[in-house]
């Protein structure tokens, strides 16, 4: 069985996947938070008392970054550190890399778009404080797809990839 796949070892593929997930999720969140924070900053200039209702809207695009972080940590767990993970075959590492891609792309895109949706919803909170609940529902709908991508990534890790490990004796 080849130790490398496409010129990279299993460890390299796995780390690349983890890095992609963290970069994708983190970048999406950073962009999303910037968009909503821009609008929220404008509202708070004139209505500082709206800080409380606006905070959840500003925070919500940050979850994609957390999903990327969770994926990065899970990669380390999937590789079972200290139990021969340096010898992880290239093709298994590549599988881990592929499993990271849903979080990488979906969190990047949904984080940015969630920021835009939150920016639109912030207008509702600016006008009527009591609309906060409804305003939060709209960006939360975008969140669904980030959560689904994380679930798929976790499923790949623990249902598809981990069972191979026993056959490899890792």
């Amino acid at each position: 069985m080849s130790a490398t796949f496409g010129g990279l070892s299993g460890l390299h593929w796995a780390l690349l996947g983890a890095a992609f997930a963290v970069i994708g999720g983190g970048s999406g969140s950073a962009m999303g938070i910037t968009y909503i924070a821009n609008v929220a900053g404008g509202i708070l200039t004139d209505l500082p008392e709206r800080f409380g209702p606006l905070l959840p809207l500003v925070v919500i695009p940050g979850t994609q970054g957390i999903y990327g972080f969770i994926t990065g940590v899970l990669v380390a767990f999937v590789m079972k550190p200290g139990s021969g993970w340096e010898a992880l075959p290239g093709w298994v590492g590549f599988q881990i890399f592929l499993a990271c891609l849903p979080v990488c792309f979906v969190c990047f895109v949904s984080g940015a778009y969630q920021g835009l949706t939150s920016a639109g919803a912030a207008g509702m909170v600016a006008k009527r404080r009591e609309e906060m609940g409804r305003a939060l529902v709209l960006p939360a709908l975008v969140e669904t797809y980030a959560v689904l991508s994380l679930i798929i990534t976790i499923l790949y890790f623990f249902v598809v990839i981990r069972p191979f490990y026993s056959t490899l004796g890792i």
């Binding site: 821009n38 609008v39 900053g41 404008g42 509202i43 200039t45 600016a126």
Partner: peptide, 21 residues
């Protein structure tokens, strides 16, 4: 464009949303 416009006019939009009342 939506992303660019949000960065460019986000602050102004926030301020006018507060004034629209």
């Amino acid at each position: 464009k939506p992303f660019h416009e949000t960065l460019r006019y986000g602050h102004a939009v926030g301020r006018i949303k507060a004034q629209e009342m």
